[in-house]
Design a protein around this nucleic acid. Sequence first.
DNA 1: CGTTCGTTTGAACGACCTCAACGATCGTGG
DNA 2: CCACGATCGTTGAGGTCGTTCAAACGAACG
Lengths: 239, 239
Amino acid sequence: MIARHIARIRARHPLSAEEEQAIRATIGPARDVATHSVFIEAGVRLDHSTLILDGIAARYKDLRDGQRQVTALHVPGDFADLHSFTLKRLDHVLMALTPCRVAMVAHSRIADLIERFPRLGRLYWFSTNLDASMHREWVLSMGVRDALARIAHLFCEVQVRLQLVGLGDASGYALNLSQIDLAECRGLTAVHVNRSLRRLREMGVVTFRAGRVEITDWAALRAIAEFDPDYLYLDPDPL
Amino acid sequence: MIARHIARIRARHPLSAEEEQAIRATIGPARDVATHSVFIEAGVRLDHSTLILDGIAARYKDLRDGQRQVTALHVPGDFADLHSFTLKRLDHVLMALTPCRVAMVAHSRIADLIERFPRLGRLYWFSTNLDASMHREWVLSMGVRDALARIAHLFCEVQVRLQLVGLGDASGYALNLSQIDLAECRGLTAVHVNRSLRRLREMGVVTFRAGRVEITDWAALRAIAEFDPDYLYLDPDPL
DNA sequence: CGTTCGTTTGAACGACCTCAACGATCGTGG
DNA sequence: CCACGATCGTTGAGGTCGTTCAAACGAACG
């Protein structure tokens, strides 16, 4: 399952066999996390980061009245909280949105790794900068896209990210989230998400049902979202 | 003027005289950038990062119909595009919102610096992760805060960030942006920003006029915004 | 087989937008 | 020095997108 993490890196940068081996050696014990359970609390001092082996996880923050906003989604192969390596504690919570299998990676091992392989340090730095790039695209979505485009954009982003690690295909992918989860990702109410999903379905663009995103018209979906994958930095760069 | 950059770092982490000297040695030539002029284009391969010595700069993205969304604001002492060190090209534009003085820092110098001082590498990594943390707070703002809270939150954030580098005081600070700029930061129209500013003024909380944010009731402003500075990681940590 | 959780739909409301007009300020050029 | 255009701020009226509230339905699960 670490393979997905390696695949994710290789999609953007070459990785030697030696580097791959060194990365694999850092991976600590794995554990299962149940749906909707929090596996990293905000504000707690951390000495490890968490790799998503399987399932979908979310970073979220909430306001006093209980309104919750998901700020990032994580798919298999992603580090959910690599940024805790430098931040030491997080400003948000990490929660499993589906049953997840995660592996702990001690910060001390990451420190050793990047000392021995400084280039991997930059690759991991890149990875957190990629998270930031996705955050910016989300700011753009929440700021100027309407509900239809926001939802469409999320479907596009997840499609690309999952395909990178060998999950899903051109026709769609498994995404076992509730409409409530989607609403919390997009800054909308579940009611409005429901109506927007219906519109997308009736337009023959995409169907979200039974934990699966079925893309029936990729070009249209992309157009509605104004999705430009540039911000995912997919063109390999030697760094 | 580099002093603000040093102050910004010292607000979060200790810095030895030797480290400070090494950082100062990386700073390249400075230049002036006029209001509303772009100093880093999207998609262009970069070999340097840009330090803001003076003035306010913004990262923005826009959609086809011309709708613009600012994804981050930068104050003196900030690197506007340190992330280009690993990303190599940016997914967004960098523009001066007020007359700015900026300094170029060659990526090769940064590479040398962090090779000689690995801890500074982590501090700079931290800095980009801090940017990401602010992005997340912006996602939260755009997702769940209403117009009044969004604007109030921005005023709070900038207040704290400017005070860190010795600009402004408890009563307020200079912020020479137009209401249009503010609107593009908050995903609102200029008209609605205008009305919201009036409300904040009439409530006796904050006045935005003549390029200045005058905070008349910090507690109220903070309450309206539900501003919690946690995400700015101000408690010094040895790393 | 009742309870719970998510989905779906309707009706009414409200926050924010659009369009439009006018005023103030300021730099520029006649 | 004044006229002019440009830019920004301000206000009003009306429209729309998304919300709130409410209710009914289906599926999953003990």
